[in-house]
């Protein structure tokens, strides 16, 4: 492929696996570094909540047996890595015997769907506004209005979520407050269901958009100012090229490239923010699963969902890095 050498591809793939391996190891290591073993701690917590757990010693022994906690640490670690490869995270403790992977299977499509839509709107809107902030033909009023719209930039998304939920769900009652579709509705590809999904998804998506589009606007504005000062822009103006043609072919296409790299870097923050938004709206995605797991001290679920989200992020960054040389023909990696 153009721009991608085998060397670059392998290095990128290596970073991808290294990321997943390090994240997986941290997640595994922490419970083992914490004093006491996770099973006893969990039974103790159960006991503190319900007053008394019958046969706690046997339960601890049974769980230890089941999870192989009596084996040596290296053996446990290797087995854990093997399970990760099969995406086997064990069973949920709160909803035993539901496997963690089943909970993830139900939640992940919602999260990815919301994330894709919200980030696409954010990226396009943010860059568009940043571009027209610098463009000479933009009406003055719009140039003053954009910074006002950026008031929410860099706010924690959960704050925007609470604010939007209060105004548009509670006060105005325009959008539903909870869930990803109307309760009692059968999921399917029909009109009412899709409408319900859109209705429920609007506020969560909007919460993500209003806190993050300003970031792209600022970055795009900076890049556009740099491009504006280039010699080829003076030449283009001297040639009498049309303003729209210059805006798109000369300015935006050059300014957008660093934004795509920035996109890969901020993806982690984006996903973290979305987890919180989903929790605020009880949206059926990973955020709500994680929150419920935290409430129930359901450690395997917390571990599994976090790990999968880390893999999703790393995968998205890998894809962006691999298509980047195709978008920017000046970049050719590895060819020294």
């Amino acid at each position: 492929m153009r721009g991608i050498t085998l060397n670059y591809f392998l290095r990128r793939l290596g970073i991808f696996f290294l990321t997943i391996w390090i994240a997986g190891t941290i997640i595994w290591l922490i419970p083992h570094l914490a004093p006491g073993d996770p099973i006893s701690a969990m039974v103790a917590r159960l006991a503190s909540r319900s007053g008394f757990v019958e046969n706690s010693a046997e339960i601890i022994q049974g769980w230890k047996e089941r999870f192989g906690l009596n084996d040596s640490l290296p053996v446990q670690y290797v087995r854990y890595l093997g399970n990760l490869v099969h995406l086997d995270f064990g069973y949920s403790m709160a909803n035993f015997p539901t496997p963690v992977s089943e909970l993830i299977n139900q939640a992940l499509p919602w999260t990815i769907g919301l994330l894709l839509i919200a980030t696409m709107i954010t990226f396009v809107l943010g860059n568009f506004l940043g571009a027209i902030m610098v463009w000479r033909r933009t009406p003055r009023m719009i140039k003053y209005l954009i910074p006002v719209g950026m008031m929410f930039t860099s706010l924690p998304s959960i704050l925007a979520a609470l604010f939007l939920a209060y105004v548009f769900s509670f006060l105005l009652n325009w959008f539903p407050l909870i869930g990803s579709y109307d309760m009692g509705m059968k999921p399917g590809l029909n009109g009412p269901f899709i409408l319900s999904v859109i209705q429920h998804g609007t506020l969560p998506a909007l919460s993500i958009v209003i806190v993050s589009f300003g970031y792209w606007t600022l970055g795009m504005r900076g890049m556009m100012i740099t491009v504006e000062g280039e010699d080829y822009m003076s030449l283009a103006r001297a040639k009498g090229l049309g303003p729209f043609y210059m805006l798109y072919r000369y300015m935006v296409r050059n300014a957008i490239l660093p934004q795509i790299t920035a996109f890969a870097i901020t993806l982690g923050t984006l996903i973290s923010g979305q987890v919180l938004v989903e929790y605020a709206f009880s949206y059926q995605g990973m955020g709500t699963v994680i929150y419920n797991a935290i409430l129930n001290q359901d450690y395997p679920v917390i571990q599994g969902t976090s790990f999968i989200l880390i893999v999703v992020t790393a995968l998205a960054v890998l894809i962006i890095d691999l298509i980047y040389p195709l978008i920017d023909p000046r970049i050719s990696y590895g060819a020294k």
Binding site: L18, T19, I30, P31, I265, I271, I294, Q297, L309, I310
Partner: peptide, 23 residues
């Protein structure tokens, strides 16, 4: 460079959630 490439893509909140839910 390798370590920062790796660390920058890990969503820190998720790892922190895992750590904190135990601590």
């Amino acid at each position: 460079r390798l370590l920062s490439d790796v660390a920058i893509t890990i969503p820190s909140l998720l790892v922190l959630i895992v750590i904190q839910s135990l601590l």
